[in-house]
Design a protein around this nucleic acid. Sequence first.
DNA 1: TGCTGTGAAAGTCTTCACAGCC
DNA 2: GGCTGTGAAGACTTTCACAGCA
Lengths: 242, 242
Amino acid sequence: MSLQSGAASPEANGTPAERPRPVPEATVSRLAVYLRVLGELREAGVETVSSEELAGASGVNSAKLRKDLSYLGSYGVRGVGYDVASLQDRLQGELGMDHRQSVALVGVGNLGHALAGYTGFAGRGFPVSALFDVDDALVGTEINGIRVRHVREIPEVCAADGVTIGMVATPGPAAQAVCDLLVAGGVQSILNFAPVLLAVPDDVEVRKVDLSVELQVLAFHVARRHTGATAVTDKTNESVVS
Amino acid sequence: MSLQSGAASPEANGTPAERPRPVPEATVSRLAVYLRVLGELREAGVETVSSEELAGASGVNSAKLRKDLSYLGSYGVRGVGYDVASLQDRLQGELGMDHRQSVALVGVGNLGHALAGYTGFAGRGFPVSALFDVDDALVGTEINGIRVRHVREIPEVCAADGVTIGMVATPGPAAQAVCDLLVAGGVQSILNFAPVLLAVPDDVEVRKVDLSVELQVLAFHVARRHTGATAVTDKTNESVVS
DNA sequence: TGCTGTGAAAGTCTTCACAGCC
DNA sequence: GGCTGTGAAGACTTTCACAGCA
């Protein structure tokens, strides 16, 4: 597997720290949440928001939010708060939404079909631009106006379209082969819904969404409640397991 | 070592300290992954597995795996490895799979319909036992042999069926109301697919699956690759949604 | 006055490295 | 010899608390 960490961090070039930008991984996923909330606020006509308000609407505490935003530089006004529109722009840039993103989805069976029809993606800047499946009964059909192609066309189409993100929604056994085709097409970011571990080159990033794992984590807590173990602390008023 | 002295243990009820069990949250979701892999190994007839092998197949390193398993007690044999069957049993118990789990799904639109038909849930011990929607065109139809009921029946049905986990797959604006109904039905664990923050009582646990956030995290890394910044910190290439 | 930005402290998670047992 | 279980070190993340600015 490509799990072996390399040796020590090979980062030792002469470039001095230009700007403050070592955004922690944990922060990145929260930035995406803040961005969604900012969109809602803007929609509602709100022009300025305090860290307290934005944090509350995002399900985190305000200190964390301020720390998160501080990695992008200073965008708030002391005594006032943040300008909704400009913070939204800043986050969009940081999250790569100023580059054009185009998404390919492989596997339009049960789950894949739903993902293909999910309006939330396009609405948030991730239009699904290509669909693929192995099943000849599905190839040629259209979903949401997009024609389903055969998986063998993946490398060519992805390269031609400049697909930046691939979603794998095939059954487990097919996932690795599909993943290889995406990589062959130059895709460097993959969201994997299949319950298998994908092997990829080091320069390709994979995130995994495993719904059964989510359920099992919940089941664990159900079981714990029944096993007498008393409720675990709780300082936050709003508890969202992130 | 973990718990500092000072304040006396607040746990002072009649129940004596049963077992050593402070399983960290981060460990729990990995246990679910190990459990899946163990199932595959058993299927394949493998009887014994080393931490190195199981870790490799799960996408983590072996030290982490051993540490994770150590929270459950000692189930391996030095010089040999772990017995697949008995470790599987142990994990199943720990993850609450010896209790009966029953899942209610609310919202059988686009995504919900797919989730209702997803065979992976039943196959992994989470049979979806009830479906709900507001749409009268859907109420009364059957998916996978289960009849869709009106959301107003949620509290009654959940209480009667002993539903332990609720899945919310409605559009955002409807999610909070649906959540309240689930809570009224006694559901204490909720998996939320709607892009909103759910407010719940302290004794109810919510986990959120936000697909747009996943895409945005990937987009961030796409953008970073283009911004020259070479790969940094990130050693793992397979990440589990948190 | 009110709220941001941030060092420093506290807490959590991961990795190392090796003692101990088969 | 081989592999588990685990203290201790290290890395990362969250929280605290307050200086500093509009």
